[in-house]
Write a protein that binds this DNA or RNA. Structure first.
Length: 409
RNA sequence: GGGAGAAUUCCCGAGUGGCCAAAGGGGGCAGACUGUAAAUCUGUUGUCUGACGACUUCGGUGGUUCAAAUCCACCUUCUCCCA
């Protein structure tokens, strides 16, 4: 008898809330269950928060259950108010469709959508053409405004303002679940913990309309030990799209997580066996760096594939450890024409985009934060000439950890 | 529909005619310390400039004034009270 996936998820610390803990466990242990997770295409790439959901999906799939990945082409037209203090920016239908297509491509790398193994649907297919009055009569009747207002997800919004369009979001998501229950026999909806209210809406709706029991379960949001959302950097979200967050930066993000978060991340974002993770949990101080390397490599591998993960690791080793190949360190190019007889450092930084403005570059240099070929740049007047380039290349370091090769062409 | 109030730099938030590129906090960046961690301390945080300084910014558009984030008009969005 193989391990019940419920126990796996529980052991790894995924589970936040369940509608019926025992029943869900039993169900997952006894039959092949169809379940769904929804993803609203509000940006042109998935991010780390989505990754966690997809990992769960993968765990479930490995255990023999059947995932439905729902792209929220319809719900994204409205915008989920859950967990937000302000209204989402309204997206056009074209943007949503484009974003949805990006989501689809990225998901294919993480979950097996082979014949009969998993399904991908778009709720735009049934939501966009709904008739308002019939929707109200069929679905709206089942929702109590009193109860909705009491729901946690509207709390902060009731203080700051909530528009009617967003208030409807819950009905739409509830309807999705009902629809998937009817069309695919989908019995469980999973999601981030911020989705709890929306999931309950669906569970209730199925009971009222179908007189049947459906289940819901939410997962821990990926937060740091301080309770902050993970997957955010000064530059914005950490994306799964390699053109938005390079595999190297992605790797570095995980390489640099706080000590306190490594083990949690290993459990949630990798498929390494618990026995191995438990071992790493015993590691202390500097030794934890090894765990971070493993985390970074594994997560990068899952998202970008083995070769990219190796390249990222290689680059990191070359910069921070010993060995490794410089090949894979991020680079920018500059032409000989631009360089001419010599170029001011600031101009070079600005021209290559290594610094967003010259003021910032000047500040960086004045504070001793810039090195070229490992030598600190002392003056903003420094001129870089072709002779500084060895093998047509110089290594520019900003601060402690940001490295770029500048290649002369 | 009627009335009251709000919109400030990445965020929160002070500023109510010149001393304002705009207090304070958060965040970011950099330095020291370290383990590519955290905590701490220091510096820095609109753009251009070697510097003096110049230029753009306080929801939008016009206006008053020698001078406007600050005053006036209209517009937009949001909040609150009444219906």
């Amino acid at each position: 008898m193989s391990v019940n996936v419920f126990d796996t998820l529980k052991e790894r610390g995924f589970i936040a809330q369940t509608t019926h803990e025992e029943k869900i466990r039993e169900l997952l242990g006894n039959e092949k269950v169809t379940f769904y997770i929804g993803f609203d295409p509000t940006a042109d790439s998935l991010h780390v928060g989505h990754l966690l959901q997809l990992i769960v999906m993968s765990h479930m799939q490995r255990a023999g259950h059947k995932p439905i990945a729902l792209i929220g082409g319809g719900t994204a037209m409205v915008g989920d108010p859950s967990g937000r203090t302000d209204m989402r920016k309204m997206l056009t239908r074209e943007e949503i469709e484009y974003n949805g297509s990006r989501f689809r491509d990225q998901m294919k790398g993480l979950v097996d959508f082979g014949e009969g193994k998993a399904i991908m649907v778009n709720n735009g297919d049934w939501l966009l053409d709904l008739n308002y009055v019939s929707f109200l009569r069929e679905i709206g009747v089942h929702f109590s405004v009193n109860r909705m207002l009491a729901a946690e997800c509207f709390k902060s919004r009731l203080e700051r303002g909530l528009s009617f369009i967003e208030f409807n979001y819950m009905l739409m998501q509830g309807y999705d679940f009902l629809k998937l229950y009817q069309d695919y026999g989908c019995k469980i909806q999973l999601g981030g913990d911020d989705q709890w209210s929306n999931i309950l809406a669906g569970v209730d709706l199925i009971r009222r309309v179908e007189g049947a029991e459906a289940y819901g379960m939410t997962f821990q949001l990926l937060t740091t030990s301080e309770g902050k959302k993970m997957g955010k950097t000064q530059a914005g979200a950490v994306w799964l799209d390699p053109s938005k967050t390079s595999p190297y930066d992605f790797y570095q993000y995980w390489r640099n997580v706080d000590d306190a978060d490594v083990i949690k991340c290993l459990k949630l974002l990798t498929f390494l066996p618990m026995s191995e993770i438990e071992k790493m949990a015993q590691w202390k101080d500097a030794q934890l760096n090894e765990a971070k390397k493993i985390l970074a490599y594994e997560v990068t591998r899952i998202v970008h594939g083995e070769p990219e993960a190796q390249k990222a690791r290689d680059a990191a080793e070359a910069l921070f450890g010993q060995g490794g190949s410089k090949e894979n360190i991020p680079s920018v190019k500059i032409t000989r024409d631009m360089l001419g007889d010599g170029m001011n450092v600031l101009d070079l930084l600005a021209a290559t985009g290594l610094v967003p403005s010259k003021s910032e570059g000047r500040r960086l240099i004045q504070q001793g934060g810039l090195s070229i070929n490992d030598i600190r740049v002392e003056s903003v007047d420094k001129i870089i000439t072709a002779s500084d380039f060895a093998d047509n290349e110089i290594m520019v370091r900003k601060g402690k950890k940001s490295f770029h090769r500048v290649i002369l062409e």
